[in-house]
Structure formats: structure tokens, C-alpha cells
């Protein structure tokens, strides 16, 4: 088993507050993928969705063309589960937190792009979080090589795709999402690679937040 040398991932780019309406917003680009994320919260919530002991998290993933389908619902669920883990929702009982992700351009690793954008938007909105989250994608090609930060084409042809989400405080796994078939050692290798990838994302978060608050 060899590692692909395609590890020189281009650094993500982002900007805060380009939308005026949401409480927190970010435009985030990683590789060829670009998403816009907006967060409203804490806001009022429909009675049927209200939780007495904590805030309810609602996520929307909007594709750029067509109506949202089953795949987009899956993305929504993944992102919602991750956000619920990261947020201190007990601080916002009987209210809602709404995370909206709009796909702008799709070029592979859209899930990790969306998760990272959601994290930055939540940071921008000032909602309490237990820790930061960073997602990284890795895929297994037909020859058994692992590719970090795959392009859309590589992802389409891949035998298996791994998405791992890590937290910042102790580096534990928050979420693991896989498709396709793979061996256990390949999974572990992918986990290692993605952990390295996520460390870079955390570094990047630190940099942008520093840049945001230390302007003057």
C-alpha cells in the first residue's frame, strides 16, 4: 500500500460576513468547491420542533440547480448531526439554530467543504460551541491508492470515499462517513491521512479568526 503524493492540498479560502441578513455567514472554498453558509440563531422555532431542554438544530443544504433531492437530505442529516455535537445546545432551550448551506460550485469533497463552512459560519455567529470541527475527505482509487482532497472526477471513479470529522480540543473523531468497499487497514490509513488534513484546517481556522479580529 502506497500513499499518493497528491497531499499538497491547496489551502482553503474564506471570507466572513459577506451576507448581511444571517447572524453569521461565510463563503468558503476548498479545492474547486465553493459553498456559502449562513447561520441564524438563536431564533424562534415551530412548536412541533421545539425542545424543552436544548435548542433544536435545523440544517438546509441547497443544491445550485434543481430541487433538493434525497442526496441533499442525506447531506443535511450529516451536517445536522455534526453541528449538534459541536454546539452547546443546552444553552438555548426552546429556541432554534438554523444552518443553511448553499452549494455554489461543486468540485469534489463537497461534504467536508460544507462542514467546514458551517463551522466557520457558527464561529462568525457567536453561538457557543464545545469545540471546533474540521472535516477531511479521502478516497480510494481503483488501484488501491489513497487520495487526499480528491477532485470531482477522482471521487466519481473511486472505489471508496471516506469523510472524517475531527474536533479541535482532543482531536477525537466526531463523525465518520464512508461509501464503497474497503479493507480495515485501508480505513485506518485513511483515518490517519484525514487527521493530518484536519490539522491543516484547524491551523487555517486559527489564521482566519486571527485575521478577522486583529485587523487594526
Amino acid at each position: 500500500m502506497e500513499m499518493d503524493s497528491n497531499t499538497d492540498c491547496s489551502m482553503p479560502i474564506s471570507n466572513f460576513g459577506n451576507l448581511t441578513r444571517p447572524d453569521g455567514s461565510t463563503i468558503y472554498s476548498q479545492g474547486k468547491s465553493t459553498v456559502i453558509a449562513g447561520v441564524y440563531g438563536p431564533i424562534d422555532v415551530k412548536p412541533q420542533k421545539m425542545l424543552i431542554d436544548r435548542g433544536s438544530v435545523e440544517t438546509f443544504f441547497r443544491p445550485k440547480s434543481g430541487l433538493p433531492g434525497v442526496g441533499d437530505r442525506l447531506y443535511e442529516t450529516i451536517i445536522r448531526n455534526i453541528c449538534e455535537t459541536a454546539l452547546v445546545s443546552t444553552l438555548y432551550p426552546r429556541s432554534g439554530i438554523q444552518v443553511v448551506i448553499q452549494e455554489m460550485q461543486s468540485g469534489g469533497e463537497l461534504i467536508s467543504c460544507s462542514v467546514n463552512a458551517a463551522c466557520l459560519a457558527l464561529l462568525d455567529s457567536g453561538i457557543d460551541m464545545k469545540f471546533l470541527i474540521a472535516a477531511a475527505t479521502c478516497c480510494l482509487d481503483q488501484e488501491g491508492y489513497l487520495i487526499v482532497d480528491p477532485t470531482e472526477l477522482q471521487q466519481e471513479k473511486a472505489k471508496a470515499t471516506f469523510v472524517f470529522v475531527f474536533e479541535s480540543s482532543e482531536g477525537r473523531i466526531v463523525a465518520s462517513h464512508t461509501t464503497g468497499t474497503f479493507k480495515l487497514e485501508q480505513y485506518e490509513q485513511a483515518l490517519d491521512l484525514c487527521k493530518k488534513g484536519s490539522a491543516k484546517i484547524f491551523e487555517y481556522y486559527r489564521k482566519v479568526i486571527n485575521g478577522k479580529y486583529n485587523k487594526k
Partner: peptide, 13 residues
């Protein structure tokens, strides 16, 4: 592509 969009320029923020 949008990764070269003006939305990323810092003066917008």
C-alpha cells in the same frame, strides 16, 4: 470559478 470571486477579497467583510 467562484474560488477566484471578489467575495473573498477582505475589504468586503
Amino acid at each position: 470559478g467562484f474560488q477566484h470571486s471578489h467575495s473573498f477579497s477582505k475589504d468586503l467583510s
